[in-house]
Design a protein around this nucleic acid. Structure first.
Length: 263
DNA sequence: ATGGCACTCTTCGAGTGA
């Protein structure tokens, strides 16, 4: 069972790359972020024709998340939106249950707020969203399911996860408060799947379009798959599909994939 | 040493992102 998370930075702009990735990697579950379109504009037909079941939670112009499963895996009990703030109209969370032949899997696709600039309501919203995610993750963990919380966390967990840490001092992605909130998820019993498999520096999932960040390999690691203990027990591997950043008209993020043995 | 991008839309410039 391979589960991929990918911030595509506009699913319409990235449809060609997405369809090619589905064909070459044939992941079982895909968590997409930054659709940048309403549900009606999501390229559902093309993705269904590629062999996938689709659930979306979109909004106009910004944000937007989706879950895909490779047929015949179904998506059940779809939840759209993170609990804890009925006033929150931003489409940043979708979760579903995926029953397989041998196990029941629960997966969430999450697009956490960026939070910049600090000292503004955007930063407050980021921290509030992280608190809401912590509470929801705690409630889900008590179900003791094979659970994967995947997405663009917009948090650089540790200095090892950024090429030039000094350049990110004071940025919402790297501030102690953001990192502490992410660490609280780990302290709840969730495991950062990529770090569990590879402790080396230089693992990045995002390179800015600006300033030659890609050619100079000035990346950051902000796309994460957090595993419940039951998912960690089944962890086989985790990897970054870095080559997709080198394509023509790429997303600024690349996919990250975890393989679980649900046999 | 420095500056450098790419999306969206009540679209040709501003807002957003990281």
């Amino acid at each position: 069972m391979r589960i991929t998370t990918w911030n595509v930075n506009s699913v319409k702009q990235r449809l060609g790359h997405l369809l090619a990735f589905l064909k070459e990697a044939s992941p079982d579950v895909v968590c997409l972020q930054e659709l940048k379109c309403v549900d009606e504009a999501f390229p559902r037909t093309e993705i269904e024709e590629a062999g996938y079941v689709v659930a979306t939670h979109g909004q106009k112009a910004f944000n937007g998340v989706a879950l895909l499963t490779r047929q015949p895996l179904p998506l059940r009990d779809v939840r759209r939106g993170l609990p804890g703030d009925p006033e929150d109209g931003q489409a940043r969370y979708i979760e579903a249950v995926i029953p397989t032949a041998t196990a029941t899997l629960r997966v969430a696709s999450i697009y956490l707020p960026n939070g910049n600039p600090i000292g503004t309501p955007k930063y407050d919203y980021k921290l509030a969203f992280l608190r809401r995610l912590l509470l929801h993750a705690r409630a889900l963990r008590e179900k003791e399911e094979v659970l994967v919380l995947a997405g663009d966390y917009n948090v650089i967990p540790e200095p090892i996860d950024v090429a030039n840490p000094e350049a990110w001092t004071g940025d919402a992605l790297f501030l102690p408060e953001s990192r502490a909130a992410f660490r609280m998820l780990l302290n709840e019993g969730f495991t950062d799947a990529l770090r569990a498999c590879d402790e080396r520096p230089g693992l990045y999932t995002f390179w800015d379009y600006q300033a030659g960040a890609w050619s100079r390999n000035l990346g950051i690691r902000i796309d994460h798959l957090l595993l419940s203990p039951q998912a960690l027990d089944r962890l086989v591997s985790a990897s970054v599909q870095k080559h997709l950043r080198g394509l023509d008209k790429p997303s600024d993020h690349v996919p990250v994939t975890v393989e679980l043995d649900l046999g």
